[in-house]
């Protein structure tokens, strides 16, 4: 239970995080509600997979709004990518998904957060559990694992509402051709005909099936809506996993 303290003590010294401009070089529609913005950020310090950045929007009259977004690209990429889910009544996300275009600039600072992070050198096995757009920081870990060429056994258990809501679906299919990475999808709302994956909310049975036994001491990262994160973290602890190895990040319903 002292893990949080130890983790904190080894953290590197921090430089002041300054606001800088990133230029949108590519926009990738991922699903009907999510888009990836690929940004060229000249002074980006290399991030760790799992970290996030802050975005600041400024209107002509000086009004500003800020939000945080997880970085989805691995540190090996020369560009920085965030994947944004459009929230219907949001203030910032509709601007990022509907208005921002290639060539536009975006004010940002980061990377931020040093706990929900994994580097290939830490080894594995690696158990990733995602709900919805919570897959974004986990995708940075998966891409980093592939780019680093480490043979760390990794599993992703990914809950989406429908087949069409799966973010990074084709890329995940490709990456899963590596026998060291297994991807398990579950679709909670509806499933296409012939769907061979799971079809219910992540529960204890599903976790027992997918998670490594606690004796193998996997590094565990869970990211998604609060209800999913609470349920999965509690269940994994009940299955005998050391709470010290269960790291969580939430994507609450609020935001924008």
């Amino acid at each position: 239970m002292e893990h949080l303290v130890e983790q904190a003590l080894v953290a590197a010294p921090h430089k002041r995080l300054v606001w800088q401009l990133g230029k949108v070089v590519r926009v990738v529609p991922e699903t009907s509600r999510t888009k990836t913005l690929v940004l060229e950020v000249p002074d980006w310090p290399q991030h760790q997979p799992g970290q996030h950045l802050d975005v600041r929007l400024t209107a002509e009259d000086g009004y500003q709004a800020q939000r945080s977004y997880s970085v989805g690209s691995p540190p090996e990429d020369k560009h920085v990518a965030i994947t944004v889910e459009r929230l219907e009544d949001g203030e910032v996300s509709p601007y990022l998904t509907d208005e921002l275009d290639i060539g536009d600039e975006l004010e940002l600072r980061g990377p931020i957060g040093g706990y929900f992070t994994w580097q290939a050198s830490q080894g594995g096995p690696l158990l990733l559990v995602a709900g919805g757009s919570g897959v974004v920081p986990l995708m940075a870990m998966i891409r980093h694992r592939a780019a680093a060429g480490r043979e760390v056994p990794a599993r992703l258990l990914y809950s989406s509402r429908t087949f069409e809501d799966i973010i990074y679906r084709e890329e995940l299919d490709q990456l899963a051709q590596d026998p060291g990475l297994e991807v398990f999808h579950t679709l909670t709302r509806s499933q296409p005909e012939g769907w061979a994956g799971h079809r219910r909310r992540i529960d204890s049975t599903l976790l027992e099936e997918v998670a490594w036994p606690s004796q193998q001491q996997p590094h565990i990262f869970i990211c998604g809506p609060t209800r999913l994160v609470e349920a999965v973290a509690t269940t994994l602890t009940e299955l005998g996993h050391d709470p010290a190895r269960v790291k969580t990040e939430r994507f609450g319903p609020s935001g924008g």
Partner: peptide, 19 residues
């Protein structure tokens, strides 16, 4: 305060499982 927005929800943030 600057950079903040008002929410009616009560978001949950924590680094690990709920003790």
């Amino acid at each position: 305060p600057p950079g903040q927005y008002v929410t009616e929800d009560f978001p949950v943030l924590s680094a690990g499982p709920t003790p």
